[in-house]
Nucleic acid binder design. Structure first.
Lengths: 216, 216
DNA sequence: ACCTGAACACCGTTCAAGT
DNA sequence: ACCTGAACACCGTTCAAGT
């Protein structure tokens, strides 16, 4: 009423995001919410509010909520891919690297339970039509296939279809991760114990070499 | 207006369920919807409508929608438990029985994808407070533990903590099942191939006997 | 080219009221 | 003891309108 508004003033938050990369801001805000309050707390309204933007602004950049979740999933596969490769590479790319990669996979899921759940059962499950242009899960999977091929080349892994081997390895770590997230493993040590056991058994089913030393 | 209603008449559907077991009718209606139209189509309104009952009648028998889903999950574990036991028992309770049990697990998940998803990630994940009185997943798990103990007694399985072994086996079949449901395995044959491979590798990591015949 | 505000259809849930 | 009907708070989404 009283004060003469020379500049538009106010709109402090809106100003911040109008010029920036709104799609990216929405993605990272969605990620934040999912990680900290769970998937049920993610509403388009809350995302808009947090970003100082209308609740329908999202539709200028994403087809709908499902598309936003698809972007969240793709980002998850991108990060998983990187963590897997680092574990494999820094682990020395041998047996130790392989086992580090398995542990890193499970660790990622346990550290980001809600994000991990969005990565699966979401866009992936609804048929290829709604998949993002490049399926980011293929990237993460590719790291695993590459590792197995390299192990085979070094005579460290069984020489069988690498794609099938990789699917098997993925099944095992995915299964352990899901059981952990589903609350079947009640104490954190249980996850650790199963994780170690599974990866060790996995190697003795995949790796070639010592004839399964007697289990004492 | 015109016709004099001697008997209450009408209310043809309501009459049918007032005396019956409404909770059970609601559970099976929910199950039907989930199996045929997916979890997103399950609304309390539709359940009530199908049963000729108010959409809030459900609250007389279940705490809320989540509780209904918990009942759906429990029923799923009950059926899974039975199918696992039958596979194990009819398979001869040896190596063949064990492998039949693994195949039956994956088969159950593939045949009832939405139901299987409700079984996990739902009530199980939300902490012990909301779990049903007796955790029905323990029953299905118990069948697996019993089988492993029996295999150990017959000298067919590695002598190690049966609980840990069972968790490992569960991880593998759960992982294969989830990858199949998540659309990672595109063709049905892929599921079959991975399923067979995983169960065979599983046995050679769990069973005792022939020293891992050379993979040709 | 990007964003808003009102409106719409549809949820789960509560609660006073009925029988 | 069991069920109803209206009401409430909260969704995702559409669309004409603004800049």
């Amino acid at each position: 009423m009283a004060r003469p508004p020379k500049k538009p003033a106010a709109r402090p938050k809106a100003e911040r995001y109008h010029h920036g990369d709104l799609p990216r801001a929405m993605l990272s805000e969605a990620l934040r919410t999912i990680q900290r309050r769970g998937i049920d707390s993610l509403t388009l309204r809350s995302v808009g509010e947090k970003l100082g933007v209308s609740r329908t602004a999202l539709y200028r950049h994403f087809a709908n909520k499902e598309a936003l979740l698809g972007a969240v999933a793709a980002e998850g596969f991108r990060r998983l891919r990187q963590e897997l490769f680092e574990a494999w590479d820094q682990g020395g790319r041998g047996r130790a690297g392989f086992e580090a990669m398995g542990a890193a996979y499970i660790h990622f899921a346990v550290r980001h339970p809600s994000h991990y759940r969005v990565m699966f059962g979401g866009a992936l499950a609804k048929g290829d039509a709604t998949l993002p242009p490049q399926d980011k899960s293929a990237d993460a999977f590719g790291v695993l296939v590459d590792a197995l091929v390299e192990l085979q080349g070094a005579g460290l892994a069984v020489s069988q279809d690498a794609h099938l081997l990789a699917l098997f390895v993925w099944s095992v770590v995915h299964g352990v991760a899901m059981l952990a997230l589903d609350g079947v493993l009640h104490r954190p040590e249980d996850t650790e114990t199963l994780s170690r056991f599974a990866i060790e058994r996995l190697w003795s089913g995949i790796g070639v070499g010592m004839p399964a030393e007697a289990v004492k």
